[in-house]
């Protein structure tokens, strides 16, 4: 295995946690950092995947998922966090669980200044909307943090976002 492939093993860790905690529905707005995880979920017949036009659709969808007795997760980039704010009021008022896996932009080594406003505001925005925020910056922590978040959201009926730091995902090469 090539070194860069090894360095990206953490998406597989997230997929393994999804299987361990019986996640059956994934909704997502794509992000480069989620490429492998989306592929793994789409290749799994036991996981239903839904591509969204905007992130708040996934918040609403996963409320329906839980109403129907299943567990799901929402994959997105930090730029989509702001889109979710009002829809998160459903999650808070009804005490729905919600597992959000958010790849960060607008921080560590960001080349695109337009990503900074939402990226820098992401943790506070989520917290103000009632979401518990946990963060990972090192690949060896991904499995434990995602697992702990999944266990906590589905046993407490409270929303949790795991922020995957841009340091973990790596620099986006803007020369390409």
């Amino acid at each position: 295995m090539k070194p860069e492939a090894l360095a990206r093993d953490w998406p597989r860790d997230i997929y393994d946690v999804f299987k361990q905690v019986a996640i059956e529905q994934i909704s997502y707005v794509p992000d480069a950092g989620h490429t492998q995880l989306i592929k793994d979920c789409e290749a799994d017949d036991a996981i239903s995947t839904v591509s969204l036009t905007s992130e708040e659709e996934g918040v609403a969808m996963l409320a329906g998922t839980w109403l129907g007795g299943k567990r799901g997760a929402l994959l997105m980039q930090s730029s989509g966090v702001g889109n979710c704010i009002n829809t998160l009021s459903i999650i808070q008022e009804c005490r729905f669980p919600l597992l959000m896996i958010v790849t960060m932009r607008g921080e560590w080594g960001e080349f695109n200044p337009w990503q900074l406003p939402m990226g820098q505001a992401t943790p506070q925005t989520l917290e103000h909307a009632g979401v518990i925020v946990q963060r990972v910056d090192h690949k060896e922590d991904v499995r434990d943090v995602v697992h702990a978040a999944a266990v906590m959201t589905f046993s407490s009926n409270r929303p949790i976002a795991v922020l995957l730091g841009q340091r973990l995902i790596g620099f986006k090469d803007w020369s390409k």
């Binding site: 529905q25 708040e56 969808m61």
Partner: peptide, 22 residues
């Protein structure tokens, strides 16, 4: 019946999640 009193614009997507789960 699940009643939404907020989250304007969400009803159809709540329905999708429920339909896929059931």
């Amino acid at each position: 019946t699940f009643y939404l009193w907020g989250g304007m614009g969400s009803a159809a997507m709540v329905g999708l999640g429920l339909a896929l789960a059931q």
